[in-house]
Nucleic acid binder design. Structure first.
Length: 279
DNA sequence: CCGGTCACCTGAGTGC
DNA sequence: TGCACTCAGGTGACCG
């Protein structure tokens, strides 16, 4: 489900609700989503104070008292929602975790497809985890020139590279397709074929699009929602994502769908300079 | 290092 | 109605 703007929105909402609150209980209803195991997750989180909630790429990081962390990845369908106290009938379908805070608020973790997971990590384990994840820098942390230099050092096609979290942290399928369209670059272009000017332009479009998407609280395409159930608004600004067969906003030609790196890909074959074109 | 395929899951939509 | 099939915002393993 969520990419950088959606996770950023969720993190801000979680921080507003949970920062400074003690976790009175963590109820785990689906053992397999807990990492490294249920006992560690419950043991580290239950009774701890949530000092703040932060984002690293698409990961949600709850900073806990004593330096421990609860790290969450929502994958495709994970969500945090403001819930209700447990009732005897058990949790609603697809709710796998319930956090009861010391002010009586309840946070639910819901995940239809159960791809996501929650880690309980001590301070030291978190450092190791972060090193192993080897996340690339966020687009905002790079200058256009640094981004261009990073691109030039890589082989392979531009779209899968932008999706690679070790190259750049936070982009997903929607924002890659939108950024490549905005920059006039075809998703099949080899990364090393981009001129420095094209690479700088691409960086500029990525940052511009992510900033605007964060301002609009992300894209609600299917069922992404913030913790109160409100959706985002950036889907109304999409130029190509999910618009196969519609007219290109630039040239009026038909937008295409292809598969790149196993992902559905939306682009304009006329506006976006392809791998076989002379630049 | 790179690309392709599959696996992890459930649900929505489409076509017959 | 039912069934078969495709697709979905993510990522990691495995293989050539």
């Amino acid at each position: 489900m969520p990419e950088l703007p959606e996770v950023e929105t969720i993190v801000r909402e979680l921080d507003a609700v949970a920062a400074g609150r003690k976790v009175d209980r963590l109820d785990l209803f689906t053992a397999k989503i807990a990492r490294p195991n249920p006992d560690r997750l419950v043991g580290l989180v239950q009774g701890a104070v949530i000092e703040g909630v932060e984002r690293r790429a698409k990961f949600i990081v709850f900073r806990l008292s004593g330096g421990a962390r609860m790290v969450v990845h929502l994958k495709m369908t994970g969500k945090f929602l403001l819930g209700r106290p447990l009732d005897p009938g058990g949790p609603p379908k697809h709710v796998h975790v319930s956090l009861t805070l010391d002010d009586g608020q309840v946070l639910w973790y819901e995940d239809i497809r159960r791809f996501g997971f929650l880690w309980g990590l001590s301070a030291e384990e978190f450092d190791d985890w972060l090193a192993a994840a080897a996340l690339g820098p966020e687009p905002f942390q790079l200058s256009a020139a640094e981004f261009a230099e990073r691109l030039g050092a890589r082989r392979g096609r531009i779209k899968p590279l932008l999706l690679n979290q070790r190259f750049l942290g936070g982009l997903g399928n929607i924002y890659v397709d939108e950024s490549l369209f905005a920059a006039g670059i075809h998703p099949l272009r080899p990364a090393e074929s981009l001129s420095p000017a094209e690479a700088r332009r691409l960086h500029g479009e990525i940052v511009r699009i992510l900033d605007e998407a964060i301002r609009l609280r992300g894209s609600t395409v299917n069922d992404y929602k913030g913790i109160t159930g409100a959706g985002g608004e950036y889907q109304h600004r999409h130029q190509v994502y999910g618009k196969t067969g519609e007219a290109s906003p630039e040239c009026g030609g038909l937008l295409e769908r292809l598969v790149v790196g196993g992902r559905g890909t939306h682009c304009c074959p006329a506006c976006q300079i392809g791998p076989d074109s002379e630049v």
